[in-house]
Write a protein that binds this DNA or RNA. Structure first.
Length: 476
DNA sequence: CTAGGGTTAG
């Protein structure tokens, strides 16, 4: 702020402003200023740089580019970059890194290729940046080319570059190539192990990730919190038989003192729920000293998915009493909680137990589940999360499940964004509530609007057809 | 002087 009003007209002041600005963004002050005011400062400093002609100084230009990138203004950085007549390796690398940070592999590759055409020599940092940009499915074809450049360019024994290669292959879906590079490495560090373990975990190879977790320790490496966060992912732990090694990883984490690490505990809560042990999840959750919205959401979602609807809802209320504000994920978890609860009610029939159950959820036994749904809905609106398509879907589904088809339709009609799940939820809700005609016209409408029905959509609409005659079946 | 590999909920 003070910078914005400051007279910046001498070269030394210019440098000072630029450095202060970049420190503001890079250093510990980050976040204390709104990015809009940082951007404002940056453009003012930029103006002065242009007036003094310092924009052709590669060092100054690089600082300026960094600040723009940190403000999220990659296009402005690109403008500075393009105007720069003589670019050094820092400028090229910064530009590539900027695109990498903002998930723009095609632009990063364009700059990288331009660099090579103009005779620029990428160094290890350039490779780290371009590999980061290519660490996504669309980046694989480019990533392979860069792999060849790296092998020819003499970076075969550079641990960070090779680690970045492993990461690139893992993130772009080619886990086999990732493992190949990993196995070929003569030297590795903790990050290398974390990348490989995380890659296997993300691809659902939990058992393999776990054996690497043991192997790294045999080789003298000490797992850090990232190791635990990498291995304890839902995809790695939801397969049958995962619970055994998850508990083993948990024991290691406790022994190493990571049981006081909130993020590790969050991952444990989630993963225990996913591997079917809600009791272990609850134990971890209860033992936590600090909890954030992720902790609460993980626990609520875990309870919900394991048929502990009542507990999930009371935890949802408790979370808010403790001042933690639910986000989209929390509501999503609640939606699932409601589903499983109501599905369970249906399975069990209307037994007094279920009504008693609902009366705990809601003060009024007569409104039962619907009141509960409305309460969640009200809070979602209050939080401004009802416009989220996932929350909307959950609410449509919940209203249908509680038999309030009019509320479901109201929700459905009011949604600004719908996906195939929205349509299917509404159609099956109508179908199950004997509104076959309405379900069918919605089925036609969804296709007019360009949505392609999925198997569940057909299942719902075919159910309608069996009860209302065959005329519709022919149309389908 | 400047660029920098890995990170939990859905």
């Amino acid at each position: 702020m003070w910078l914005a009003g400051m007279a910046v007209n001498s070269t030394s002041q210019l440098f000072k402003s630029l450095l202060v600005t970049s420190e503001l963004i890079d250093g510990q002050n980050r976040g204390r200023l709104a990015s809009s005011s940082l951007y404002d400062i940056c453009t003012r400093v930029h103006d002065c740089i242009l007036k003094s002609g310092m924009d052709q100084n590669p060092y100054v230009a690089n600082k300026l580019m960094r600040v723009y990138i940190r403000c999220g203004k990659v296009q402005d950085a690109r403008h500075v970059f393009d105007k720069l007549v003589k670019k050094n390796v820092f400028n090229w690398t910064t530009m590539i890194g900027g695109y990498a940070e903002h998930g723009r592999p095609a632009d990063a590759i364009e700059v990288y290729n331009q660099m090579r055409q103009e005779g620029g020599r990428p160094n290890e940092v350039t490779y780290l940046s371009i590999l980061k940009a290519c660490a996504c499915p669309v980046g694989l074809k480019w990533g392979k080319e860069i792999h060849a450049h790296i092998s020819h360019g003499g970076f075969r024994s550079d641990v960070p570059v090779q680690t970045a290669l492993v990461n690139m292959y893992a993130k772009s879906g080619s886990i086999k190539d990732a493992r190949l590079v990993f196995d070929e490495m003569a030297e590795r560090n903790v990050i290398t192990w974390n990348v490989m373990i995380g890659g296997l975990a993300q691809h659902g190879f939990g058992q393999e990730a776990f054996s690497l977790f043991l192997q790294m320790q045999e080789e003298g490496f000490v797992p850090d919190s990232t190791t635990y966060l990498s291995i304890l992912t839902a995809t790695a732990c939801s397969s049958a038989g995962a619970l055994g090694w998850v508990k083993e990883v948990h024991r290691h984490a406790v022994k190493a003192g990571f049981d006081s690490d909130m993020r590790v505990c969050n991952a444990l809560v989630h993963v225990y729920s996913k591997s079917g042990s809600v009791d272990d999840a609850r134990l971890v959750f209860e033992g936590m000293l600090d909890r954030d919205v992720i902790s609460w959401s993980a626990m609520i979602g875990g309870l919900a998915q394991n048929g502990c609807g009542h507990e999930a809802f009371s935890l949802f209320l408790k979370m808010q009493r403790e001042g933690v504000i639910p986000n989209v994920t929390t509501y999503h978890g609640c939606g699932q909680e409601a589903f499983s609860l109501f599905l369970r009610m249906r399975r069990e029939g209307v037994v007094p137990d279920a009504i008693t159950y609902m009366s705990i959820l809601n003060a009024s036994a007569s409104t039962g589940a619907l009141g509960w749904v409305k309460e969640v809905h009200r809070q979602a609106v209050q939080a401004g999360l009802d416009s989220d398509v996932r929350v909307g879907n959950a609410l449509v589904h919940m209203y249908c499940k509680t038999g309030s088809i009019s509320d479901a339709r109201l929700m459905f009609d009011g949604m600004v964004e719908r996906d195939v799940i929205t349509w299917t939820a509404m159609i099956s809700g109508l179908a199950q509530n004997e509104c076959g005609q309405e379900a069918f016209s919605l089925f036609l409408q969804m296709q007019r609007e360009g949505f392609i029905p999925v198997a569940t959509t057909y299942a719902s609409i075919l159910n309608v057809c069996t009860s209302t005659g065959l005329a519709m079946v022919e149309e389908i």
